[in-house]
Design a protein around this nucleic acid. Structure first.
Lengths: 177, 177, 177, 177
DNA sequence: TTTT
DNA sequence: TTTT
């Protein structure tokens, strides 16, 4: 339930391959960097200046699985999600705030490349509800936190669950936001 | 022109009175903190847990004027804008990233309280294009930067323009994002 | 699943009390007429001319129940749904096309009046999936069809199910679209 | 100005080449039929059933020019506009209501094919405001009205303006909505 | 009437 | 860091 509206709609291209991780329960969590382009007329020169905005996107559930499987660096995609800002501590112990576009069971993804693949997910996905408290992060670090729901408490213990996909390395070690 | 889509739609309530400033040209720039509420079912307890998300909103042009004049702490409002992340340095000289919802000539605002007032602005506003390079900030500070378009170069010189509304104090001195 | 995007977002006021009906299974189906106001500048006179657009909205499931219970003539509401055009025959046997905004499990509703009530529904509603083939219409008429999913086959048989709310009269007998 | 929100967002494919006409002033007006695809699980068979929704889209101004020049049958496109229902008389003199998605100066278009072309328009377009009272329709017919703003009074007189593009034939002679 |  |  919601007593407000919090909606983000983006069409852009991936800056890198998506980063897929898995919770101990085997639920996919995917991080994307998405570029949306815009150009504006410079007031001084009258020139059209291109301007790229980068968005940090976190996907959960079934949408995340499809995204991890079919999206690649350069892919064009439509996503619909919500804004979420979470607070974490950097290595100096200072509070840092990161704003992300969260695409969960209520969100939507739409692949816009003509290449094959499944390529489309909407909210009707019956399973794959985002799990909030079972995020698996291998080699947990203090400074660059995993993408997460702010209220979630993530485990640093790697899952032993058979058949679970292998977690990948940290997504954003070198990305300053 | 845009070669992507970057759209944010929010309905929420103001956490404080809006902060209105003016560029040397007399153009209004308004900052808001907007709360959108949501509640989710806790997986452990099954309880509905309320959750508030705070959004930093920056308005330009005619919409900013209306917002500054009619919105107050607690006002319910619909806004449509775009996501923008800008980088600034804190007093330790570290890079900090702040994501804002920018409502400019292409955005929209809609007051949702039944009180009087004008209370509605859409994109058709012919004048009031957001000015990017003439932001007026009195008593410029290094650490908590003015809300601005990332590519804009703002002046720290107070405008002497007669009839210009009086700039207010810093908006977010105590707000950690 | 969807291989496209079909989204409608409206904020407006109800022209009448909502019309609530129930399927034989007891699922609510609510019809609304929603007015969105806009004004434009007349090219001849330069005057601001008000202009009201009326939207036919059909709600299903849990959202419909809340809408039927809390919305009234004049209520201000945010709705999110999808466009759907259905074809029916008028009494002359001619094809007529009616376009509606369908708010189902993937849609959203948000009451915007300050009066009490629950007043907000988003898509996370786990139950209340719209039922497509069990619409109950008492005294079915040929000319003004019930609001329905185009692919649905609705029954004209009144439900005998105990505890089912009482169906109301036809919604749109006098409404020309 | 608007005292409501009336927004439609579609991603789909064109069923035919766009229909481009021009007002006596030389302003482009483009009609599109846009298909958005969705599939749902049949309750009886459990099968995924594809379902196509067709949307009638009318574009004005600069966006119309770009659309007319670059979009073709099959093109994938993002459009943002508003809902508008207009009333006209068929040859039997009966009132007919047609709902369209109007993309004007406040709307947006985004071509999503990787083919060349300009392919993107947003609302910042300074010129090309939709003209409401100068629509040019050659061989005006009574029954199948031109796409138009309901409040507009269109002229049937072909423009004599030099350099004006040639109006095309009627768009929707055989399209029942 | 489109697309995958 | 993407794309046209």
């Amino acid at each position: 339930m919601a007593r407000g509206v919090n909606k983000v709609i983006l069409i852009g291209n991936l800056g890198q391959d998506p980063d897929t991780r898995y919770t101990p329960n085997g639920n996919a969590v995917v991080n994307l960097n998405l570029a949306t382009d815009e150009s504006y007329k410079d007031r001084q020169t009258g020139q059209l200046v291109p301007k790229t905005e980068w968005h940090r996107v976190v996907m959960f559930g079934k949408i995340a699985e499809v995204a991890g499987q079919y999206l690649r660096k350069g892919s064009k995609v439509y996503i619909e999600g919500k804004l979420q800002t979470r607070k974490w501590q950097n290595k100096e112990g200072q509070d840092v705030y990161t704003t992300e576009v969260v695409v969960d069971i209520n969100g939507q993804m739409q692949m816009l490349d003509s290449r094959g693949g499944e390529g489309s997910m909407n909210q009707g996905a019956p399973a794959g509800r985002p799990q909030q408290s079972d995020y698996n992060q291998q080699g947990g670090q203090q400074n660059n936190p995993p993408p997460q729901q702010p209220s979630g408490g993530y485990s640093n213990q790697p899952s032993q669950g058979g058949g679970m996909p292998e977690p990948v390395d940290d997504f954003d070690d070198d990305i300053p936001f």
